[in-house]
Each structure stands twice: as structure tokens, then as C-alpha cells.
Design a protein around this nucleic acid. Structure first.
Lengths: 343, 343
DNA sequence: TTGTACGCGTTATCAA
DNA sequence: TTGATAACGCGTACAA
């Protein structure tokens, strides 16, 4: 690795001049010098040392992507198709803007913060964050933050400065549309399936309740089917739920993965989908096209979500004030093969 | 971000002393001083500036993970379940060893090399590399490299120094076992399905041929079913293949994803799996458990592969000479529901 | 036991 | 139009 100093010595000029040419501060350098330097740079394949540059400029060109991966749920969070799509979108956008991505997977906020300040990360993308976690990060970390799919309470929001933006989905509206669609088909006994009831899934639950209400359908807590997310328990709990699925004519699932697993579990015990039971998923990732019949689901563009989040963050890093604190994308219905009229 | 200098000033001592305490060079510092410094460090939440440290030590604590993502094949390489598992394993291992992972996705080797030397990356993990690509990287990059699933020719191997190691799978043996299993069930018309015939898939093809040979079964080029990997073409080409699947009694697929898609495509046109056609996959990722019947496949532990590769690389970075240049893991058969005796 | 001085590669300021 | 010099934060050899 050749350095600017070495180049300067080789060319009998000062490091400043070389640096100026490199940065196109060309109005202060003679045409001839520019020529000489540029030719030499090509020859020796000069690459700047980013550590030195960062040190001098107090920046890093790094976007930290924080996934708070709860161990019980994800042994390996990359495997989640939604996360995969999101990361793909982020990576591409970050790279296009001349930044680098550094991943911080951990369920320990303190550790994450340590790494982030060690590297002097220019901006943070937060995913899978609960309300209070995001707040803790905000308090310790002064640079721009963009959250993805984070619902924060009104009090928490107060504590945030204007350097906080969330990119999310209209989960409420999406769920409402999905369930209205089922109701429109004639279903009345509709279950809600998820592994939790906060954040995104809570919003979807609210949308589900809303749709039921609009059609004058009663809700009972028996309609909430809770999957155990832990790897070892999951299959068992899905089979158990399938066992009592005949109590319903349709199930709204909070993720495609669970939906597909439900389809398989049901079929394996003789419940035909969609003849006996309709199933609708959420997210529309590639899992849904891996099952038979292909999954009817609510589509969202995770890759685009990642891209928007990254681009917004980088604009904030460049000093632009974000126009909104909330960027909300829309979900849309994709009819495939797992929903039919009851009976 | 507080610096060592500031701490020293605050405590009325020299930066050296503070630095010594931080690094446990305790034999040269009085107990009392140690106490004072450590207490203060806690108080102010001191975090070293890694850019400065790297600059001073000419290192980076970064492991570069290079995925040469061919655009036509992967719009988003994270979505590939095998890649996801592998990355999960790498990330965990890298983090545990106190290193950081930086991802370089690109199909442009020159660009990758530029980034890698800009960041002064301590070691490189290469995945999806063809023979000559790996060589080009080796020539330009002087630090340790570990390849994953890379088959290199003997001439190429010559050019590599001893700082090159490959972590792979016994693809040949795995394919041979899978196909022998099918042959043992009585199958004779066995197709080989893949989207290419080099590297890993070539080895699997050889294992397939070997098994056929051992059972005295003829091979014809008509037995090679080639999927078009491009997103838009893939589905069509799989359907087309399914259309002529009745020519065979079994198909050996080079990936679980393709296998699952074949199962669905076949069933959709009335070919029952495994009654009419047996299908066996390779890799054993979670896709295989998403189809009905669940996929019979050759298992490999991608996460472990990632871990081994990372740990080997880091040992090389620490100056250890690797014992072998080839670390070859084994594949093992997992019997589930997509293989039966013919007829 | 503690402190001084310098180097790492780059950028920025200011003087020549 | 060019160059000298300091600064970024840390680590370390060597001096005190």
C-alpha cells in the first residue's frame, strides 16, 4: 500500500499537492502537475487509507445496521426471508451511496453502543427495536438514526430530537384489508395467528379487530392463536393449533412463514386448504410460492423499505432535515390459492 | 467521545499511564493509579477510537466477507437459504473472536480489492469464487484468505502460497451417496438437475455419474436437466422440466430450493411425489421442510462451515500456519418423504 | 512508577 | 501555484 507521502517524495513535491490533486482541488494546481500526479496514481494503484482519513475528518463512512436478535426467536436471523430482503435493499443502497455497512447483531444494547462509538459510525439503522431500546440508543448516540418498523409511544416520541425517523408499513391498514377480504368472502370465524402481540404484530392485530368490528363480528380471545417461536417448540405448537383449526373457517397469519407452515400442518391432518380452511399470510416473501396451493397474502416490498431507510439516513448524514418523521409504505393484497369462500 | 489525552488531563497523569492501565500493562503501574484510572474509565464510558488504533497498529480488526454475486442469478443473494445460514455462522464466529465483519457484494473483483485495501482488512473470506477470481485476489492481496466451496485447478493451486485454505464439502461423495440411495431403491432412470456444471455442481455431477457407473447404469446427456437461474425464466424452465419428468423415476437436485420447486411443479401437473417420481435435494435447509411431502435430502451444516472458515482465518491472522489447505466436511442423508421405490 | 516524543496516513490551515 | 506544519487518537520505545 503506497501512501501519499511516498508518492510526494517520488514525484519531488509536497504531500499537500498530491492530496489536492486526488481531491480535485484543481483550481489551485497547475495543469502539468495534475497530469503528472494523476498518471502516477494510476501507475501505482493508489488507494487511500480510510482509517487515516476517518481519523482526520472525524467520520467513518460506515452505516451501522443494528438487528436486535432475540436469541429465543432467532438462532440465525439471516434466515428470516423478510430480514434477508430488507438487508439486500439496505446493502445495495448503502453501497451505491459510497458508504459501507457494518452489521451489529446482538440483544445487548450496551454492547452495540460500544461498537458503534468505537467505529465512530456515521449513522444508524435500527431494526427489531422495542420502544425503550430505541430510546436508549437515542440518548447515548448523537448522530442520525432511522428506525425500521418501530412503533414508539407518544411519550417516547417526545424525547426524540428531529434526527429520528421511522420507516414502516401501514400494518393496521394491511391487516384490515386482509381480514375484510376474508369477511367479504363470507368468513365469520376468523382466527389471528402470531407469536407475539406488540409492535408490528400488535398493529396488525388492531387492524384485524377493526375489520371484524366493521362487519359486526364478535371477537373472543380464543381467536388469538399464539405460536411458540422457539425453534424446538414451534413445530409442535403449530401442529397443536392445526388440531383445533376446525373451529375456524379462516386464519389470518402475521407472517408468510407461519402461514406456509400452517398450510402444511393442516393438510397433513386432513384439513384441506382452502376447501376446509382459508389461510392468508403477510409480507409476500418467497416462502409463499413454495407451498401448495400458493399462498394468498398481503404484499410488502421489504427491499424497497431497506432502500428508503438507507437513503433517508444518508441524506440526514449529509445534513438534510427529514421532511417527515414517519415514512409509511402500503401493503397490497395478492390473491393466490389459499383463500376460498367457506363451505 | 472522550479520548485518552482528556482522561489523562482530568486525572493529572500522562496518557501513557492511562493507556497502560487500559491494556493491562499493570506491572508498571502502582495499584492506586490503576484503581483511579479504572474507576474513571467506567464513569466516563471510555471507548477507544478504532480508527486511531488501527492506524497506529496497521491492522483493522475487520474480516472481509466477499460474495461474488452474479447479477443474473441473484438479485438479492441474502435470500438464498444456504448463504443465509453460512453468513449466520460467519457472523457469530467473527464476533466471538473480537473481529468485525464487512460484507463486499459485487461481481467486480477490482472494486472489491479496492475496498479491501482501503479498509486494510485483516483477512478475507471468499465465497462463490471461480478458480481464476480467487487467484486474482490472491495476487493482489497479501494477507490471509480462506475460500469457501471453491474448487481450484492444480495449476492454480501452484500459484497459491501457504496462506490459502479452502473449506468445502465432500460434494462428490454426497452426490454419490444420494444417487446410490436412489439406485438402491430400484431407480434406474435418474436425472440430474442443476443450473450449471462447474465448481460445486460439477463435483456433484461427477458423484452422480460415479454412482450410476457403479450400478452399471448408462448416462445420457438427456439426463442433465438444466434450470435457467434468472428470476424471470426460472419458473417457466422448471415447469418445462416437470413436463418431461415422466421420462424419469427419480431426480437428483443440486439444491433444496430447486427440489422443492420441482415437487410443486410436478404435483401441479398431476405427477405425484414420491408415488410417480422420487425427488432428492441437497443442502438440507429450511425450504425442504416447507413442502409436502417433506424433502428427502443430503444434509450439510452451512452454519458450521461458516464458523470453521472464520475460525481458521482468524488463526491464520494470528500467525498460525494452517495444518491443511483443505478442510472437507461430510454430507449425510436425511430421509423424509420424497423418495420411494419406483412403480 | 510515570512521562516525553514520535509515528501511523490523511486532511486542513496558512504562509511563501 | 506550492509547501510546511499541525492535528486527528492511539500505542510504544525510551528517558526520567
Amino acid at each position: 500500500m503506497i501512501t501519499i507521502k511516498e508518492i510526494a517524495r517520488e514525484l519531488n513535491m509536497s504531500a499537500t499537492t498530491v492530496s489536492n490533486v486526488i481531491h480535485g482541488k484543481t483550481r489551485e494546481v497547475s495543469a502539468e502537475t495534475i497530469e503528472r500526479v494523476q498518471k502516477f496514481l494510476k501507475e501505482v494503484d493508489y488507494v487511500p487509507n480510510i482509517n487515516a482519513r476517518n481519523l482526520a475528518q472525524n467520520q467513518s463512512k460506515i452505516i451501522g445496521v443494528v438487528l436486535k436478535a432475540m436469541k429465543y426467536k432467532y438462532d440465525n436471523i439471516f434466515i428470516d426471508p423478510f430480514v434477508a430482503e430488507l438487508l439486500g435493499g439496505i446493502e445495495k443502497a448503502v453501497r451505491e451511496q459510497g458508504y459501507f455497512m457494518m452489521l451489529y447483531l446482538s440483544d445487548d444494547i450496551a454492547e452495540i453502543l460500544k461498537h458503534v462509538s468505537t467505529w465512530n459510525v456515521d449513522g444508524l439503522l435500527l431494526f427489531c427495536m422495542m420502544d425503550d431500546d430505541a430510546l436508549r440508543v437515542r440518548q447515548k448516540y448523537g448522530k442520525p438514526i432511522v428506525c425500521i418498523d418501530t412503533y414508539i409511544s407518544d411519550e417516547t416520541r417526545e424525547s426524540f430530537t428531529d434526527r429520528f425517523v421511522n420507516v414502516g408499513l401501514d400494518d393496521f391498514g394491511g391487516a384490515r384489508e386482509a381480514v375484510s377480504y376474508l369477511l367479504g368472502k363470507g368468513h365469520r370465524k376468523i382466527a389471528f395467528l402470531s407469536d407475539n402481540k406488540y409492535g408490528v404484530d400488535l398493529e396488525r392485530f388492531r387492524g384485524y379487530r377493526k375489520a371484524l368490528g366493521e362487519f359486526g363480528v364478535e371477537y373472543s380471545d380464543r381467536n388469538f392463536l399464539q405460536v411458540r417461536p422457539e425453534q424446538e417448540e414451534q413445530e409442535k405448537s403449530i401442529m397443536k393449533i392445526a388440531g383445533s383449526a376446525r373451529d375456524f373457517t379462516a386464519i389470518f397469519c402475521c407472517s408468510d412463514l407461519y402461514a406456509v407452515k400452517m398450510v402444511n400442518a393442516c393438510e397433513s391432518i386432513g384439513i384441506r386448504v382452502p376447501a376446509d380452511l382459508s389461510i392468508i399470510g403477510f409480507d409476500d416473501n418467497y416462502c409463499g410460492r413454495l407451498c401448495r396451493p400458493p399462498l394468498t397474502t398481503m404484499h410488502q416490498d421489504a427491499e424497497y423499505k431497506g432502500r428508503i431507510a438507507s437513503e433517508t439516513l444518508i441524506r440526514m448524514i449529509h445534513g438534510e432535515k427529514p421532511e417527515t418523521r414517519q415514512i409509511i409504505l402500503k401493503a397490497s393484497l395478492v390473491e393466490r390459492g389459499t383463500v376460498a369462500a367457506p363451505e
